[in-house]
Amino acid sequence: MQPEVEIRFTLNGRPVRTHVPPTMAVLEMVRERFALTGSKLACGEGECGACAVLLDGEPVLGCLTPAVDVDGRVLVTVEGLRHKADLAPLQKAFLMEGAVQCGFCTPGMLVAATALLAEHPHPSREQVRRGLEGNLCRCTGYVAIVEAVEDAGKR
């Protein structure tokens, strides 16, 4: 067995600590250690974006980021995007624009879009499209998702 490494970090606003094997990815850590199953394993190769999480505000792939690298940092998963009891404006925009169908890509889309909006609060359509280029969706054809992010940027 691999020796586990102790890490402490902020997870969705709360200080936490856990022990992880050094080869464990953030995705398995949040799903198995913290029961946060919103982040999805859909390819495990960094090609689909369904596992995206925010690390110090930057969007990263949960499946390819070593869990040990979050030590001392701030991690936000899709479960941490809501504003207290209420949904975040972006989440509301996803619902109001029909950006959710099967929903499997939605967590990663929301995370990537949250990062995009943090960097460009009022993004152009092209910026939104490029900002989501690492997230695959099979249901929506991306149209409603792009509109939702644009909408959230107009608020």
Partner: peptide, 9 residues
Amino acid sequence: FASPLVRSR
């Protein structure tokens, strides 16, 4: 290069 999610790492 790849995607924003990869570029960040």
